[in-house]
Simulated assay, not measured.
Amino acid sequence: MTSARIGFPSSVAPHTKLLDDHRFHALLPPEDWGRLPVAIWRRFSKRLTDGATIVYVGEVEEASFTRAGWWIAQAARLVGGPLPIVSETAVSTIVTVTEDRTGGGQIWSRIYPRRNGFPQVIHSMKSFSGPTGLQEYVGFGITLALRISVADGALVFKSAGYALQLGPLRVPLPDWLTPGDLTVIHSDLGGNAFRFTLDIVHPYFGRLLRQSAVFRESAS
């Protein structure tokens, strides 16, 4: 089993306060939040001091692209490379979450090693703003509004429109200029492990890519 090979200990660093960050909780009705496992509550309720980082270490268990998906992922490198371009599995991966009090959000970095060549690094910033109360900035002025929900005990993030942010001006992007509908599912596996699953479905080309990885929180 993939998760059994990730032997990193659980820890709570001194700069972390459990159950003291209500920003994700506030985006869901209380009854939906109540349907989540306690482990997900804790994971999304940790308050970090400014600049503090949580590190999650995992292993990619599934990664696939269609031909159109591969080309769109390559084209997205022109705007900062926000999509995975690596289809290797059974390789280690790292996700870091850093609190950014200046911007009022969290900086997410994802590192995908490659057996040949340098690792791919994806940076984005989640801010608790925008039309849905949560949006992700991927660079070059491009933002993605997100809606969260609960399904089968998992926390689900779904895209709710891409836009070009020009200062205070937000210009929605047409579907043909976007990768398509994005869905991220965060499901708890018990034993301090969780699965992260990413799916992108294009309105014309269908599913472009799918990626799944199992993570544990590493010692800080």
Rank of each mutant, 00 (worst) to 15 (best):
M1D: 14
T2C: 11
S3F: 06
R5L: 07
I6G: 05
I6S: 03
S10V: 05
V12G: 02
T16F: 00
L19I: 04
D20N: 14
H25K: 14
H25V: 08
A26C: 06
L27V: 06
L28M: 08
L28H: 09
E31A: 15
W33H: 08
L36E: 03
L36C: 10
P37L: 14
V38G: 14
A39D: 15
I40C: 10
I40L: 15
G51Q: 09
G51C: 11
A52K: 02
V55E: 15
Y56W: 08
E61N: 06
E62N: 12
A63Y: 00
S64K: 14
S64F: 10
S64H: 09
F65G: 01
A68L: 06
A68D: 13
I72V: 08
I72Q: 01
Q74H: 11
A76K: 02
R77E: 14
L78T: 08
L78Q: 11
L78H: 14
G80C: 07
G81A: 07
G81E: 14
P84G: 03
I85S: 11
V86T: 12
S87R: 11
V91F: 00
V91A: 01
S92K: 12
I94T: 15
T96W: 00
V97K: 10
E99S: 15
G103V: 02
G105A: 06
W108K: 00
Y112E: 12
P113K: 04
R114H: 06
R114Y: 01
R114P: 05
R114I: 03
R115D: 10
G117A: 05
P119C: 08
Q120D: 11
I122K: 00
I122T: 00
S124C: 09
K126W: 08
S129F: 04
S129D: 15
P131V: 12
T132C: 13
T132R: 13
L134H: 03
Q135G: 01
E136S: 07
E136T: 07
F140T: 09
I142A: 05
I142W: 01
T143L: 03
L144V: 06
L144I: 07
A145Y: 06
A145W: 05
L146S: 01
R147N: 13
R147L: 08
A151V: 06
A151H: 14
A154V: 08
V156C: 09
K158C: 13
K158D: 15
K158W: 00
S159T: 05
A160D: 15
Q165W: 01
L166V: 11
L169G: 01
L169Q: 09
L173I: 06
P174G: 10
D175Y: 03
W176D: 13
W176S: 15
T178C: 15
T178D: 15
G180R: 02
L182F: 05
T183A: 11
T183I: 07
T183H: 02
T183D: 03
G190L: 10
G191Y: 03
A193L: 02
A193W: 01
F194E: 13
R195D: 09
F196Q: 10
T197Y: 00
L198Y: 04
D199Q: 13
D199F: 06
I200N: 05
H202G: 04
R207C: 02
R207K: 14
L209M: 15
S212D: 04
V214Q: 02
F215Q: 02
R216Y: 00
E217C: 01
S218H: 10
S218L: 04
A219C: 09
A219Q: 14
S220K: 02
